[in-house]
Design a protein around this nucleic acid. Sequence first.
DNA 1: TGCTTGCCTTGACAAATGTCAAGGTTTTTT
DNA 2: AAAAAACCTTGACATTTGTCAAGGCAAGCA
Lengths: 225, 225
Amino acid sequence: MPRSSSQALNDTLNLNIRNFADQIVNFFNLLLIMFHAFRKYLEDKINLTDEDYGLIESVSSFKKLRRRQYLLQAGSVFRFHAFVCKGFLRNYYVDEKGQEHIMHFAPENYWTGDRSSIDSYLPSKYDIDAIEESEILLLKMENFEMIRKTIPAFNDFVNETLNKNALVMQERIHANISLSAEEKYVDFISKYPSISNRVPLHMIASYLGVSAETLSRVRRQFAKK
Amino acid sequence: MPRSSSQALNDTLNLNIRNFADQIVNFFNLLLIMFHAFRKYLEDKINLTDEDYGLIESVSSFKKLRRRQYLLQAGSVFRFHAFVCKGFLRNYYVDEKGQEHIMHFAPENYWTGDRSSIDSYLPSKYDIDAIEESEILLLKMENFEMIRKTIPAFNDFVNETLNKNALVMQERIHANISLSAEEKYVDFISKYPSISNRVPLHMIASYLGVSAETLSRVRRQFAKK
DNA sequence: TGCTTGCCTTGACAAATGTCAAGGTTTTTT
DNA sequence: AAAAAACCTTGACATTTGTCAAGGCAAGCA
C-alpha cells in the first residue's frame, strides 16, 4: 500500500471515530436536555427531592421524532405515558372512509398517549405522530404507577392533572353540542391561540369536526368583521 | 265545650301526632335506605371497614327531589359531589337563545355535580334537575377530600373513576367530531340502552347536539332498516 | 273525569355544512 | 434550483340539519 493512500485511510478512520464520539456526546446531551425540560415542568408544579428526580430519570426513556413520524400506529399496543419536551404531536384516528379525526394536540409540556390502550392492554385505535420535529420522554405504565405509589406528591399532581383534563374535555363537549362551525372556530382560536398559529388549518378543522373547506370560508367571514 | 266536640279535638290531635311520628320514622328510614344504596355501590368496588362506612355516613347528607326539581340552578355555587341513590338527574345548561344542552345524564349509581364550580368556588353555569323522582346523597367537597385522605382505598377508587370517566368523555368527543346525526343516535342507543328507554327523545337529541325534529326523522329512517 | 302540559311527528322551507374539482401558493424535499 | 408535496381557497352543487308551525297522542294533574 503506497504511503499516501495509507495516510488517507488513517484520516478517514480518524474522521469516523470523531464523528462517532460526537454522536455519543450528542446523544447524552439530548437525554440531559430532555430530562431537564421534564424536570423544569415538574418543578413548576410540585416539590420533589433530587432522589425523586433520580428515581424518575432512572425509568425514563426518550425518543426523537422527525416530522410525520409515528410515535404510535393504530393497531399496536402502547403502554406509555408520553411527555412532549419539545415539538408538537397530534393524536388522531382514521375512520373507514379514510378521514382523519384529531382527538388531541400535544405541544411542549403536554402529555399524550392512549389511556384506553394503557388500561386495557388492547391495540390502540389511535395514531400519534409528530407535526413538528419533536423530543419525547416516555414512561412505561408500570413505572409510572410505581412513581405514583412511591412519591405521593407526584400522585396528587397526576390526579389534579386528570381532573383539569376532565374540565377541558367537558368544555370541548360543550362546544361540540352547541356551537356552529364559526363559533367553534372563534372559541378555539381564543382558547388556544398558540396552537392556532402552529398547526395547519385543516387540522384545526379536523379537531373541530368540520370540513377544511367550511373552516376556510368561516374564517374569511370572521376576518371581515 | 260539649263532650262530642272535645272528643273530636282529641281525635284530631292523636291523628296529628301519629302523622308526625310517622313522618319522623319515614325520614330516618329514608336515610337508612339511601345510605344503604351508596354502601352497596361502594362494596361492589372496594373493601372498606364498618368504621370507614361510619365515617362516610357521618358526613353524608341527603336530598329527595320531585320531578323537575332542581338540585342546582345556574348562578349558584355548588360544592357537593352528588351520588344518585335512586331516580335520574340531568346536568345541562341553557344558552343565550334559551336552548338547553344536556352535558350529562345521571341514573342510579352515578355521580353528578359541577367539577368546575367545586374547583373554582365560582357560580355554576349548569343546571341539574331531576327527570324522575330521585334520592340523592350529598358529600360536601371538604368532606369528600377528607374521606379521600383518610381512606386510601377510597382515594384510589375515585381516581379510577375519574380515569374511566375520561374514557367515556373521549368516546363522546370521538362521536361528536366524526359521526352524522343518525350514527350518533345509533351509537348512543347501543351504548346506553337503559338511558334511551328512560328519557324523552328530545333530551337525547339535546345530549347529542342535534335538533329534536332531526332525531325524530333519523330514528324513523333507522327503524325502517 | 276533564284539562293541561309535555312529547313526538310531519311538512315546507331555510340555512349550514359537506363534497368534488380545480388552481394557486407556500413549504419541504431532493 | 427544481420538483414534489402540502396547504389553502374558491365555485358549483348536493346533502344534511335546523327552524317554524301545526296537529295528535299520551301522561300527569286538578
